[in-house]
Nucleic acid binder design. Structure first.
Length: 543
RNA sequence: GUGCCUGUAGCUCAAUUGGAUAGAGCACUGGACUCCGGAUCCAGAGGUUGCGGGUUCAAUUCCCGCCAGGCACGCCA
């Protein structure tokens, strides 16, 4: 990785002087060179000399280094580097030899868990869940590619009050089918899917539970509704090509006794008390917030309590680090969650939250209101149906997670409008078609041969861009931002299309050059396959 | 009221966490295959980075204060 090589060289020059400070190596505007560094600007303070003089010191030290064809100083004291052609050829050769392993660092044994897509199983996934699912899926993929031991997990809140509301709502729908009218409970679920479930249920059991309601029947309706909703959710996940390694249910945590264990620990630490018939957690002892209820006066557990137990469970499962991916509406949950982990003597660094802002869905310029309970929403299923899996995944990944995502349905649906997904996929299809054309023309592809014929600026620049994938993957995991990856592949596509338009790849009059360029395309193809795989979108041979 | 996020070209978004003349796409203007896929490419125009201070060699980025939008402040999840 070029960036690292340059960084190491600069660092070792610093250590000769026994200086140690942070600086960066980055890709500047093309007119400045291949890479640049601010090492001299920052170093001025340590060298006690003007930046330009410090820069000259570095240039002197690096002048005979075969890695560079040129090192210069510019502006206020930036060091600009041009990588030698020979080195680029070496790198390309290395990529072709190692294929995708070129971009994989040595194994990193850290055990990570990503929790995302967690929801009440009370309705189908909404568009909002979609963003979360893709962020979680893509980040998991990248961490895994970089050698981490990754578990993707979904948490199901299948034990709470909402499930009982769901059961009752289904029961009301069921009765309606027999012409018996009951009021939907307040905050009940109004979604049409419950009517479908009710019809199915009527076929299966007839009038068995008509106008009857007790604890047994409630349990039956809860199980029936949850089972069917999970089926819906799984079918959506399949369409999205999103797989979980495990699903943890709230119910199972309670049955395992983890909630009791947590309560016991808190009790021993004097962190709980009773008031108004409920059990409270002394959050105010730990952070500057109000105390919270753990057990309601009717004896049921709050979400907060079972979630603490869940995170205790994660800790007992010996993850080195866990990430919770939520919508930004959950941000209020963070401080108290961190406080409770502290109360359990779990190190603060164990848990990190990744919050994403909301998705605003627009249809004909109008904002579509989404709410699971009112039943007015566009489901993730419908969205995938309309715009396809690839566009859905790419669009959810391509924005900074901290910004609101405007998803214009009409625009996304339209096949004629320019779509970044098509742009990047088209580049890949084009590469394939060049190889096909070469076969038609009888130009034989000689793997790893003739590559020293590559010398044009744009060719070497493409090699640099391929090399940069290592940095981009690292950056994606450090900033926990999938959009860095989509930006990268879009940038590679721009460079490739530009190269394609400018230079003829298959040139009958110069077969070695053609072969060199085919080798370059082969390396580009590997990078596309890596990135498409990480994003979970298809790599089309033809379009 | 308190806390979190956001504000960048007409629109949708970037900007390598403090770097050089703030970049792309759409839309607009004008060009490019008798040729490896024109779903492409090249060029032009478009900016007081919400406003005002501060920190320093350097601020879209960090700090303070305003303004605007989103979200959260439950014995909901």
């Amino acid at each position: 990785m070029l960036r690292e090589l340059i960084y190491e060289r600069l660092k070792s020059i610093l250590s000769e002087q026994e200086f140690q400070y942070d600086f960066n190596v980055e890709v500047p505007d093309e007119r400045f060179g291949d890479f640049s560094s601010n090492v001299a600007l920052i170093g001025a303070r340590y060298f006690k000399k003007p930046p330009i003089e410090v820069a000259r010191y570095f240039i002197n030290k690096l002048s005979n280094d075969p890695l560079f064809s040129e090192v210069s100083v510019a502006g206020p004291g930036f060091l600009n580097f041009k990588i030698s052609k020979d080195y680029y050829i070496n790198i390309l050769n290395d990529m072709l030899t190692k294929e995708k392993n070129y971009w994989k660092p040595k194994k990193n044994g850290l055990k990570l868990q990503f929790e995302y897509g967690s929801a009440n199983p009370t309705g189908p996934f909404t568009v909002g869940h979609g963003r979360q699912l893709i962020i979680g899926d893509v980040l998991s993929n990248v961490f895994k590619f970089l050698g981490f031991d990754v578990t993707r997990e979904m948490y199901l809140n299948d034990a709470g009050r909402q499930i009982r509301l769901l059961a009752k709502s289904l029961w009301v729908r069921y009765n309606e089918l027999f012409g018996k009218s009951f009021e939907l409970p307040e905050d009940g679920y109004k979604g049409g899917y419950l009517i479908d479930f009710a019809k199915k249920l009527k076929d299966e059991i007839g009038d068995k539970y008509l106008e009857k309601w007790d604890n047994e029947i409630e349990k039956f309706f809860m199980d029936y509704a949850v089972r069917n909703i999970l089926e819906m959710m799984n079918s959506t996940l399949e369409k999205l090509d999103s797989k979980f390694d495990s699903v943890v249910s709230e119910k199972s945590l309670i049955e395992k006794g983890l909630v009791d264990e947590v309560l016991e620990i808190f009790k021993n630490k004097g962190l709980i008390y009773e008031k108004d018939g409920a059990v409270w957690f002394k959050v105010s002892n730990l952070i500057n917030e109000e105390d919270k209820v753990l057990i309601r006066s009717d004896g049921t557990y709050t979400y907060f309590l079972t979630d603490i137990a869940y995170h205790y469970d994660k800790f007992l499962r010996k993850f080195d680090k866990v990430y919770d991916i939520f919508g930004s509406d959950h941000h209020g949950h963070i401080p108290r969650m961190k406080a409770s982990l502290k109360a359990l003597d779990i190190p603060e660094s164990f848990l990190d939250f990744i919050l994403h802002q909301f998705v605003t869905l627009k249809r004909n310029g109008q904002v579509v209101k989404m709410s699971t309970r009112s039943g007015e929403f566009v489901t993730l299923d419908e969205l995938i149906e309309e715009v396809g899996k690839d566009a859905t995944r790419y669009f959810f990944a391509m924005n900074d997670i901290n910004t609101h995502l405007n998803f214009d349905l009409e625009l996304a649906k339209s096949k004629t409008v320019d779509n970044p997904v098509f742009y990047v996929q088209y580049a890949y299809a084009r590469i394939n078609s060049v190889f096909e054309k070469a076969r038609e023309k009888g130009i034989k592809f000689r793997f790893k041969e003739d590559i020293e014929r590559l010398e044009k600026e744009i060719e070497l620049n493409l090699i640099k861009h391929l090399d940069e994938l290592s940095f981009v993957l690292k950056d994606t995991t450090e900033k926990l931002s999938p959009h860095i990856l989509t930006n990268y592949i879009y940038g590679l596509s721009e460079k490739f299309h530009s190269f394609y338009a400018k230079e003829k790849i298959l040139d009958d009059s110069d077969l070695p050059l053609s072969n060199a360029r085919l080798n370059l395309l082969y390396a580009i193809k590997i990078v596309y396959e890596i990135v498409f795989n990480l994003l979970g979108i298809t790599a089309p041979d033809h379009m």
